[in-house]
Measured scan of single mutants.
Amino acid sequence: MTEYKLVVVGAGGVGKSALTIQLIQNHFVDEYDPTIEDSYRKQVVIDGETCLLDILDTAGQEEYSAMRDQYMRTGEGFLCVFAINNTKSFEDIHHYREQIKRVKDSEDVPMVLVGNKCDLPSRTVDTKQAQDLARSYGIPFIETSAKTRQGVDDAFYTLVREIRKHKEKMSKDGKKKKKKSKTKCVIM
């Protein structure tokens, strides 16, 4: 069974824990209790493949930012979460993405942009803004509501699919490099 290491990042209060708990335990946590770091595991079937999701729910508070490099190193894919009623959390996505790329030393890291709290009427981040940002990053965008469960499975499952595509691409690139290195030079 394939294991996928997913990391949920975003500013404090955007609903990272609520999304994760909704996926794992099928219930909505409405009281806000700032996370330092929590880890969850769940076995699911995605596109006919049974897999184990190892999900790291991270601290959004700035005082825990020193811990970010460590979990970013171990993560295979990242859910970059903002709240649709919090423009600052949307603007912060850029910083999370840049930090992930720096730590992973790669421009090509599996990510999904997630606009959470889409059940709320007080939207300050337009869907088109988020779609445009995701398009500019070359990553999928999904709106979710941890409260109603809308888009929750889709967000995590899409990230797994992005990781699969990335692994497939990397193995193809690896095979191309191996083929090239088999060419021999004969000096007579």
Rank of each mutant, 00 (worst) to 15 (best):
2 T>W: 07
3 E>D: 07
3 E>H: 03
4 Y>A: 07
5 K>S: 07
5 K>D: 07
9 V>F: 14
11 A>L: 14
12 G>K: 11
16 K>P: 01
16 K>H: 00
17 S>R: 00
17 S>Y: 01
19 L>M: 14
20 T>V: 07
21 I>L: 05
21 I>W: 04
23 L>R: 14
25 Q>A: 15
26 N>G: 13
27 H>F: 15
28 F>Q: 01
30 D>I: 06
33 D>K: 00
35 T>I: 00
36 I>R: 01
36 I>C: 02
36 I>E: 00
36 I>N: 02
38 D>K: 00
39 S>Y: 02
40 Y>F: 06
46 I>Q: 15
50 T>I: 12
50 T>H: 12
51 C>I: 11
52 L>K: 05
53 L>H: 02
54 D>S: 02
54 D>W: 02
55 I>E: 00
57 D>Q: 00
59 A>P: 13
61 Q>R: 05
62 E>P: 10
63 E>N: 07
64 Y>E: 14
65 S>Y: 09
65 S>D: 11
65 S>I: 07
68 R>S: 15
68 R>W: 05
69 D>V: 01
71 Y>L: 15
71 Y>A: 11
72 M>L: 10
73 R>K: 09
73 R>Y: 13
74 T>Y: 09
74 T>M: 12
75 G>V: 12
78 F>N: 00
78 F>Y: 09
78 F>H: 05
79 L>T: 02
79 L>N: 00
81 V>P: 05
86 N>A: 10
90 F>Y: 11
92 D>E: 13
94 H>N: 15
95 H>W: 06
97 R>G: 12
100 I>T: 08
101 K>C: 14
115 G>A: 09
116 N>Y: 00
116 N>A: 14
116 N>R: 01
118 C>I: 09
122 S>L: 06
126 D>W: 05
128 K>Y: 04
131 Q>P: 09
131 Q>T: 12
133 L>I: 06
134 A>Q: 10
139 I>D: 03
141 F>Y: 15
141 F>S: 04
142 I>H: 06
145 S>Y: 09
145 S>F: 11
149 R>M: 15
152 V>K: 15
154 D>T: 05
158 T>S: 11
161 R>V: 02
163 I>F: 04
165 K>P: 02
166 H>A: 09
167 K>F: 04
168 E>Q: 03
170 M>L: 07
173 D>F: 15
178 K>V: 11
178 K>D: 11
179 K>W: 04
184 K>P: 03
186 V>A: 11
